[in-house]
Design a protein around this nucleic acid. Sequence first.
DNA 1: TTGAAAGCGTTACCAA
DNA 2: TTGGTAACGCTTTCAA
Lengths: 343, 343
Amino acid sequence: MSNRVTIVDVAAKAGVAISSVSSALNNRPGVSEDTRRRIVEAARELGFVPSLRGRSLSAKRAFTVGLVVHRDPYVLESDPFFGSFIGGIETVLDPRGYALILQMGSEPVETLDRYRSLAANRRVDGVFISDLGVDDPRIALVQELGLPAVGVNADPGFPLAAVRQSHVEGIRELVEHLVGLGHTRFAHVTGPHEFIHAGQRQRAWSDALEAAGLPVGDIVEGDFTYEGGVAAADRLLAGRAPDERPTAVMCSNDLSAIGFLGRAGELGIRVPDDLSVAGFDGIELGSYVRPMLTTVATTPRLLGVEAARLLLETINGTAVVDIDIEPARLVVRSSTGPAPQPR
Amino acid sequence: MSNRVTIVDVAAKAGVAISSVSSALNNRPGVSEDTRRRIVEAARELGFVPSLRGRSLSAKRAFTVGLVVHRDPYVLESDPFFGSFIGGIETVLDPRGYALILQMGSEPVETLDRYRSLAANRRVDGVFISDLGVDDPRIALVQELGLPAVGVNADPGFPLAAVRQSHVEGIRELVEHLVGLGHTRFAHVTGPHEFIHAGQRQRAWSDALEAAGLPVGDIVEGDFTYEGGVAAADRLLAGRAPDERPTAVMCSNDLSAIGFLGRAGELGIRVPDDLSVAGFDGIELGSYVRPMLTTVATTPRLLGVEAARLLLETINGTAVVDIDIEPARLVVRSSTGPAPQPR
DNA sequence: TTGAAAGCGTTACCAA
DNA sequence: TTGGTAACGCTTTCAA
């Protein structure tokens, strides 16, 4: 259990110097095909696995990257994003011998400290920056720390490497879908304004409506939670006469749309007959609730894959361009339908 | 950016040997109070942070522990457990200079490989084993690998260190609650039988009913998903006359209970008037749906805290006893009520 | 092509 | 109490 096999053992067994073992096993030139074979064979027989610690110290690399999630646990729990995103990250990290360190900072200051300490003791070679905020202080921080980083769904002009999935097309498709169904009175439930993606989605919604020559209607701030959707439904629907209510509502994520749906039902408003509701994300739960939720489906797993690829490239200093993955797309289910006929 | 401060720099600045710096900064004896002060001061001025890599190699420790989640991403997404569990882990890891590596293996074999490679290159000093399965192969694996490990919610007789939160009391409370409401026809929706906690919960349910002298009723296998709850509702309720249906159902987790609730509503069965439904977990969502879900609330965050504490102790070889945290407790909300009066 | 040796940044042992 | 020095396990440079 205790005495693990080291490069010295392999060298001894193969009857060569440890430097040759290192070269051979890392596919570097300068080793004859014959010796290489002998070394590989010896390593195999001994079950040699290079020690990450030795490699780390020598190579000045941690072979680890970090993700600091700065949301409160409840949001993390119910958010489908991170599970898939992390899954995607792993698929590219693992084959390259990298691993992911996950940290959670519930408060912004705490989050910054996490990044700081990850950098200070060189625990990671790079980090992901997700859930970007407006004027996000993490940007300046990683620059100051010289810590390679990749932003997820950053705005244009983001100063670091970034991977993005456009929401514009999907939201435009949603608006066209609703307009085609005859809707004219719209409303939008945003996410918390401190996150840039909340603003991105709202803007895409407003722009598409304006492009269609229709009034944007009410915009109420939500918080990405089920509860927030319930509250938004109260504000937009309760106590309003049918012809004063919006007939088509987009919530900026699925969870809040599902809350919205639930409250609408309680208020006696039928979906989609009296009201159309759509979300954003494409979480599984949306296809189980009744009516099934129309949404704009994102692909967090793919985002994770590309973010990881980009981060490793950034770390290696290989030429890097931002990556745009295929846009999120409209998925029509049963929570949207023809606009109710006024009478 | 590149030339970081090392122990050598501190030693030079303080005019002492590096061994003294090491001793002083690690609060080891053998350094005079005076020198210690000088060293600490020098370190502070230089902004010295010990290199994890150097420490790792020398101390033969990774200062990292691992969690390999072996569920498919969707379950991870919608499961409230891991977000809080990980949050709890972090609160004890962080102050002790440890970090968490998160890996995901969707298939069992893959999961085992993850553990194997974590151990092979000594990336972690120990691992958590959660979502224990029946005859879980990970137990033998970590033993064979000599990898310190802590089991989460293990059965009695578990051969490794374990942290547990008893579900028995809470489920018994639930049964007493239902019995007190006059229910006599029960049913239970389990989790996947390959997980031991699914069996644990079902057994607690059956035992409590038997203790009350009541028939256990139908037991149908679910899968912990919303969808599974819907399917279970179909099997237990659809096409059955009111007096042939159970009047009180426990689903083995909240998510499936919520699915069950939704389908019951679609079938025209009123909850709690015609039927009482309860879940297990205590997720936030349960308090937002209507009717609000009666459940047995667990505290995954606390479980994470204790699991991490125990794992670090196991790694340090300090005397270790299993930890039992406060049992999960019944939380009565509005999805349970008096048994319907037959007529 | 091969091998010896110098790092990498700590900790820990042992003289002084 | 101090300081020198040998590990720890690898990569990399430079002679041979």
